[in-house]
Structure formats: C-alpha cells, structure tokens
Design a protein around this nucleic acid. Structure first.
Length: 632
RNA sequence: GCCCCGGUAGCUCAGAGGCCAGAGCGGCAGCCUUGUAAGCUGUUGGCCGCGGGUUCGAGUCCCGCCCGGGGCUCCA
C-alpha cells in the first residue's frame, strides 16, 4: 500500500493497525481512498493508494472544523448538562453548533467560558472513536442520553449509522474526524445567535454558536484581522461618515435617501454603465413607476409575486408599483410587428422598482425595498441567443473590471432534469438555451460552476459573483433566459418563412442594483474610491483667509473643466482642514498659501499618500484629467 | 415574518427607580492668520424611539408598536 502525503511525497506502508501509524508524527488530518474519506485511525487498505489530507485541502479543513464543532458541543454539554444538541457542521470559514438551552441565551461571557472549556478538552487530547451501529440501537442510545433532536434526525436515516465518541461525549456523525481533540490547536468562538431547529419558523428556537479554528496561531490571527477589516469597511458606517446616504425611520425601512455626495457617486456609476450600453446597441427606454393590475395579471406577477408587491386601489382600479421592468419593455416591443431583420432589439432602462422584502432581510444598501436596476431586455431569435450572451458577458466583464474587480465566480443554473414538470417551456427549448449559455461561457474561457435545479421556472441563467478586495463574494450580474413572458404576452417576430415565431427574451442586470453596487464598491475600496468615481475629486485648501482669493480662482478653474471640486475657505488651521479632507477620503487636496500664490502653483496632497509637492495648475489639470480618463 | 440584542444631544457613548440627565466630538460666537491628520476660550444643543401601564416618583420596571443590528442550515 502506498501513501501520498500532503507534501506530495510517497511512502510505503504495510501491516499497520491504523493509517496514522504509517505517518510521520503530526502529519495529516484525514485520508482519502477511492473517493472515500476515512479517519486516520481507520485500518489501511490491503493495497492501492491512500491520499492523506491536511489543512490545506478543503476536505481536511472541513474535518478540522467538524471536529472543532464536536469539541464545542462537548464543552457546552459539560457546562450545561441540560442543553440538547442540534447540529454542528463545518461551514465555509469555521463551524457552528446549535443547542436548545430552554429559551436562555449565551452571553459573550458564556462564550469565553465555553472557549476555555474547549481548550481544556483539546489539552485532554481525547481520541475520537468511530462506531457503526444499526439505526435502532443509535436511537436507543440517544433516547437514553435525552437528545431528542438526534433521535429525530436518526428517524429519517438509513439502517446503519455512525457515531463518534470522544471521552464521555458522543455525537451522531458521518465523519471523518481528526484522530484526537488535541489535533485542533487554536480555536476562537465568534458569536452566538438564535436559529430555528432545521431552519423552520414553527420549530423550537436554538442557540447557535459560531467559531473558527486553525492549526497555526498566525492563521487565526489573520482570520480575526480579516473580520475586523470587514467591520471597518461596513458600507453603512462609511455611508454615514462620508455623508453619502441615510435610511430613516420617518421615511421607511429599506428606502434609501441619497445625500448629495452619495447621489453623485450613484450617478457616476449609472452614467458610466448606461453609456457603455448605448455604445453597444442598446436603446434607452423609460417607463412608469406603476401600472394597472391587469398588466401584472398578464405577466403572472399577481399570481406568483404578489407577496412582494405594493398594490393599491384608486378610482376603483387596482394598481401595482412596479417590482420589475419587463412587462413595460414588452409593451414597447409589441407596438409594431417586428421582423427577424429587426432583431436583436435591446431595451435598457435604469428602472426603479419596489419590492416588499421581509423586514428581517433588509440590510443597508445591500438589501432594500426600493432600488434601481441597470436593467435591459434583449429580444432575439433562438439562433441569435449564443451571440447575444457572449455580448452580455463581454460587456459585464468590461464594466466590472473597470470598476476595479478582477476576480469572478460564474454559476450556470440549469433545470433539474429529474423534475421537468416544474419548468415552463419545452425540452428542446431548454436544451438549446442551456447549450447556448454553456457555449458562450466556453467561448469566453470563463470557468463556471453548474448548478442543476437552480434555474428559475421560466428559464436557465448565468449569475456572476464578484470577489472583493478582502475575498468576499457579491452577487451582481444576472443573465436570465425567459420562455414564460414571450408566451404570456405573445411576443413574436416574423421569420424568414413569413410566419410568426416567439422571441427569446433575455433579462439582464449587470451591476444588479445601483444601491447594492454602490454598497459593494464602498466595501471593496473601503471608501477610498478611485478619482473617477469619487463624488468630490479635489478640495482646495487655502492656508489662511489671505489666500482665499487665489484659492477660489483655482476652484473655479477646476469646476470649469468639469472636475468635481470643493473650496474649504473656513478660517481654520491647515492641519485641521487636511485632517478633515483625509477623513472624508477626498482623493486630492490642493493647498495654497503665499508660496503658491507667488509661483502660480498648487501644493498637491494625495489622500493616504501625502504631499506630492508643487505643480503648476496646468500640470495638475493634465494629471487629474488623465487619471479620470483612464479610470485608474 | 420569527428569535435574540439594541434605540439617551447632529455623531460616538455613559447613566439602571429618587437632586437640575452627562462626557467627547460636532454646531455657533470670539480670539488666533495659521504650511500638510484636531490652535485657544466661551456657548448652544435632549418629548431618554412612540404609545399605554405599575409607582408618591419611570431613561431606568411591565405591555404593545415603530426603527436598527445579528441570526433563521453552508443540512448527522
């Protein structure tokens, strides 16, 4: 039997009781044999190859965090013997465990105590022992231990299940696990909150504890730093500090009030995106904020989207405040008979829509009730579909890269082949549409993940998530094919055969919503926006009121050239005004005093960089205009 | 929607049944005339989220509502 170590080295092993006996001290967490994951305490196979996985593999990390969650559960049981165990899986970054503690909550002090207990259990270095048994036997065991949730889980399971023991503690678990609790090194409990048993509101409330653990202290430190960094970048905090927007009780939850600077930022983003669309054959349309109920009956929204819609009555007529723009664009399309020669037709609109989102889901700019989509609908023939998708992909990548994002995650959502009855449209239409999407992605060399069954009922879609400066992903672009609305509204074109055919309709929003996108930008740049996006690009700071006159000349010149500038002519010290401008993250400060007046120059200070020295006003104008032009 | 936590000056926060509710920052006024991240002095500022209740007395305790934050599987 051959063993492949995490380092890539191989070693031979024979006649060991346990895999771990073949390994150098401290190497490896779990093992993989023929796609099956095993504990290192499992007996090695007679022959073949065993791959030993460490923390640098996804599976190894998951086992590490899974064992950590068992240690957490054991610690809680030791401190709170009456606590009932829920579930405790590893998650993307760490782990959690749910406990029913009879309506109590964990305080931060409790978490500290639990964390200390975890360290104690780690120090005990308890071996984890896997036991397989018939389901009935496991049910009895957990009944005796008074763990009703485990019993509930077991009742839905197969005949044979596995348990893991560590000391007195036992948990139902598929595994694999680390050989002993001592293999977990540095652990930190992060937060607790409530969660329903199995996520169902009708179920009992449990207390969930989140935590994370690492083999190296340095890794834990970096993780905590990253969490701190994310808090510092919170767009809601930046939004208030930079005076960009507010959300106010008097106005309503999820409704954004854009202040002057925020509105400017939003406009710069919107103008840029719309400008790019117009360059690429989109036509601008504009549609009302509400429409008669009948339109939404036809579109089907009254049926399947009513929960999210603002509906009201006036003059005996029902109206709906639009949650989407598509029906309007369809009505515009349908004002003429369209030939295949007219297609594709691409209508775009920065359409402001309102959707009633559940209060608990609202979050700053990221999830709101009123937002503006950079929306468009492409009407095309089935033959044109692939080319159109390629065009949309190129467009969105160009725009997102310009905005400063370099890394993306692409997901292709297709229909669940097991349940074709859940979807609109024919087998043939779906096959062709999904293939068009795949081919388009391949043509652009975009790696993607396929998500079968994740498609909406009316068609397959491509979602693009962008990865921000600190590695978080944000859903922005969505490109959806729609077989539903063309049928409901009978949206057709006349083909070369002289007959009417249904169009293929593509919904696409590239930034998604302007609100969310601005939020993402703020967090990505931590508020330090590049000059071209910055609502204020330059602030002119006279050193004392003696130089206000020259400062105003500089300021007027900047404004005349289209640079977004401000003049700070308050009678405060220069240090104070610099500090304020730095805090407001204004990219350029132009400081003018006696020397600058005499030499007809400006002293340039760059945000977060410092003094760049003197330039003539002409030189500075050229510099900043180039920077804006390049969108650097 | 549901669970937990919170809401006190424009902002950040202290006060936890009993004098007139506090601090820092900000705002305003005056002085200073300033050279690259906070000059000095004075002053202003509050339906203690809203409504009801308990109490001799309520930011403080109880109930309801509104708003904000975290969470509501990433499925042993």
């Amino acid at each position: 039997m051959r063993i492949r170590l995490p380092s890539g080295e191989y070693r031979e092993c024979r006649r060991a009781e346990r895999l771990i006996d073949c390994l150098p001290e401290g190497v490896g967490l779990i093992a993989r044999v023929d796609d099956k994951l095993l504990d290192l305490t499992a007996p090695p196979p007679e022959e073949g190859e065993v791959e030993v996985l460490g923390f640098d593999s996804r599976e190894g990390r998951e086992a590490y965090w899974h064992t950590s969650s068992h240690i957490l559960a054991q610690a809680v049981k030791e401190l709170y013997p009456e606590a009932k165990l829920g579930i405790g899986p590893p998650i993307e970054e760490g782990f959690y465990y749910d406990f029913d503690i009879g309506g109590e909550v964990f305080t931060p002090e409790d978490l500290e105590r639990i964390e200390a207990k975890m360290r104690e259990i780690i120090a005990r270095n308890l071996p984890l022992r896997r036991v397989e048994m018939p389901r009935e036997e496991a049910i009895k065991l957990f009944q005796e231990r008074e763990e009703p949730y485990k019993v509930e889980l077991l009742e839905e399971m197969e005949e044979s299940v596995s348990l893991y023991w560590q000391g007195e503690f036992v948990d139902l678990c598929r595994g694999p696990h680390l050989p002993s609790t001592g293999h977990v090194r540095h652990v930190k409990l992060l937060s607790s909150s409530s969660a329903y048993w199995r996520g169902l509101e009708t179920n009992p409330v449990m207390q969930r504890i989140y935590g994370v653990s690492y083999p190296e202290e340095e890794m834990l430190r970096r993780h905590l730093e990253r969490l701190e960094e994310a808090r510092r970048r919170d767009h809601r905090v930046l939004g208030a500090r930079l005076d960009l927007f507010s959300i106010q009780e008097e106005c309503g939850a999820g409704l954004i009030l854009w202040h002057p600077k925020g509105a400017m930022l939003r406009k710069v983003v919107a103008d840029y995106a719309l400008g790019e669309y117009l360059k690429r054959g989109y036509q601008l349309v504009s549609t009302p904020h509400l429409a008669r109920g009948q339109l939404w009956e036809t579109s089907g929204h009254m049926g399947y989207y009513i929960e999210n819609m603002y509906v009201f009555e006036k003059g005996g007529e029902r109206y709906v405040i639009k949650p989407m723009n598509c029906p309007f664009h369809i009505l515009i399309y349908k004002t003429k008979t369209r030939s295949y020669r007219d297609l594709p037709i691409r209508y775009t609109e920065l359409g402001t829509v309102y959707r009633y989102e559940r209060s608990g889901t609202l979050h700053g700019l990221m999830r709101v009730r009123g937002f503006t989509q950079d929306d468009a609908h492409i009407f095309c023939t089935p033959e044109q579909l692939e080319e159109e998708i390629v065009g949309v992909l190129d467009l969105t990548l160009h725009i997102l890269r310009t905005m400063g994002f370099q890394e993306f995650k692409v997901v292709l959502s297709t229909r669940d082949p097991e349940h074709p009855e859940r979807y609109m449209g024919t087998e043939e239409e779906w096959r062709r549409a999904q293939e068009a999407l795949m081919r388009a992605l391949r043509r652009r060399g975009l790696p993607y993940e396929e998500a079968p069954g994740e498609a909406v009922f009316y068609g397959p879609k491509i979602d693009i998530k962008l990865v921000d400066a600190i590695g978080r992903t944000w859903q922005c672009t969505t490109i959806q094919i729609d077989f539903n609305l063309p049928r409901r509204f009978n949206v057709t074109y006349v083909g070369p055969d002289g007959r009417e055919h249904l169009v293929v309709m593509i919904h696409r929003a590239l930034l998604g919503s302007l609100e969310r996108f601005v939020g993402v930008l703020l967090e990505h740049y931590a508020g330090n926006l590049p000059v071209w996006l910055s609502p204020i690009q330059v602030r002119v700071l006279p050193i004392s009121d003696k130089y206000v006159e020259y400062a105003s000349e500089v300021y007027e010149r900047l404004k005349a050239e289209g640079v977004r500038a401000e003049l700070d002519d308050r009678g405060l010290t220069i240090a104070y005004k610099v500090r304020e401008a730095e805090e407001e993250k204004i990219p350029y400060m132009l400081i003018v005093g006696r020397r600058e007046v005499e030499a007809k120059t400006v002293a340039v200070r760059r945000h977060r960089v410092g003094d760049l020295g003197q330039l003539t006003l002409e030189e500075f104008m050229a510099k900043i205009k180039a920077e804006i032009e390049e969108k650097a």
